[in-house]
């Protein structure tokens, strides 16, 4: 029980919270045909985090957030510059920017000596959910002990904050998000600026990427931004239902993925271990596969 509280509970919370925040905003990326933006975000914030760490010498939440946001903003501007001013083909603009930002991040990581100290490329790629631990937990009573709760892993606070902000915007702007996702031209005629709403969506995606990246790694955030929303899309035509379903799938992926990562090696005998972040992402992908094969709304009503 104590080991569950100390090791599994914090890891599980980190995994599922990251899954939820990425999925929530991912719904709107999928609807507006920007699914690859999640992937791009996962890549571009890396140099921001590294530079922020090198400059400030700390992994404090606000430093990381500021660095990552600056990197995301800079990348967005660079992509827009390449597309609109230089007239590079849109997907080439996106592709060249997110690869170069990631390359820059990797190089800085290796050259600054940050690697192998606070975080390294492996953690960014593979996720390090397992490092979220709560040593202060001594019994169930710790759940109600403010002192013990204060020593919960800092990722949790960041993720909870990110989820709260994203959820707030989604709830407040739900009507506008629906209109803009469905028909940006119509949105403009009724006085809802699609660019502004689109900018908010991209900013929220950046926020979700930032709070998730150092906690769960790039792969989990990329998978969660697209797989659960796509899964839900196979089952319903109603946006509200889709969002709720996607969150349910994200939760299920988090819990089952983590459980599989922990329990399956035990079943096999202790010699191997599964990365929890990767396993959660694979479960999300498998849920999507199931929905694509059997979902009620899997077919394409799109006309030619």
């Amino acid at each position: 029980m104590i080991s569950f509280l100390q090791i599994d509970l914090p890891a599980l919370l980190v995994g599922t919270l990251a899954a939820l925040v990425c999925t929530l905003i991912g719904n709107f990326l999928v609807l507006t045909r920007q699914s690859m933006l999640g992937d791009a975000m996962g890549h571009v914030v890396l140099p921001g985090i590294v530079i922020a760490f090198v400059l400030a010498g700390t992994t404090a939440t606000w430093v990381m957030l500021a660095g990552a946001f600056a990197a995301a903003l800079f990348s967005a501007m660079l992509v827009e510059f390449l597309r609109r001013v230089a007239r590079v083909e849109p997907s080439a603009a996106l592709g060249s920017v997110f690869t170069v930002m990631f390359a820059l991040g990797v190089l800085l990581l290796e050259q600054s000596g940050v690697a192998r100290t606070s975080f390294d490329v492996h953690h960014i790629l593979f996720g390090n959910i397992e490092t979220a631990i709560w040593p202060a937990a001594t019994s169930l009573a710790s759940l109600f002990d403010l002192n013990a709760l204060a020593s919960l892993p800092p990722q949790l606070g960041r993720l909870a904050f990110g989820l709260a902000v994203v959820a707030l915007f989604v709830v407040v702007l739900f009507k506008e998000l629906r209109v803009v996702s469905f028909d940006p031209d119509f949105a403009r005629t009724v006085g809802i600026p699609p660019q502004l709403i689109g900018g908010i969506v991209v900013s929220l995606a950046a926020l979700a990427a930032v709070v998730s990246l150092s906690a769960v790694g790039v792969i989990l955030l990329v998978a969660m931004m697209v797989c659960p929303p796509a899964t839900a899309r196979m089952l319903t035509d109603d946006l509200k239902t889709q969002v709720w379903l996607s969150l349910l799938f994200a939760l299920a992926s988090g819990i089952f993925g983590y459980a599989i990562a922990v329990l399956l090696p035990l079943a096999f005998g202790y010699e191997i271990s599964f990365g929890a972040a990767g396993t959660i992402a694979v479960v999300a992908g498998l849920l999507q596969l199931g929905a694509m094969l059997f979902g009620a709304k899997r077919g394409q009503p799109r006309t030619a």
Binding site: S35, D39, F126, V226
Partner: peptide
């Protein structure tokens, strides 16, 4: 075969395959 657009198809296949690779790598380690 599904109603998902190409960008979603690309992103979800990328994520799932890469995740599978990462799980296998952690096993190998």
């Amino acid at each position: 075969r599904t109603r998902l657009t190409e960008d979603t198809a690309i992103a979800s296949v990328l994520a799932t395959f890469f995740a599978l690779g990462i799980v296998l790598l952690t096993v190998i380690q």
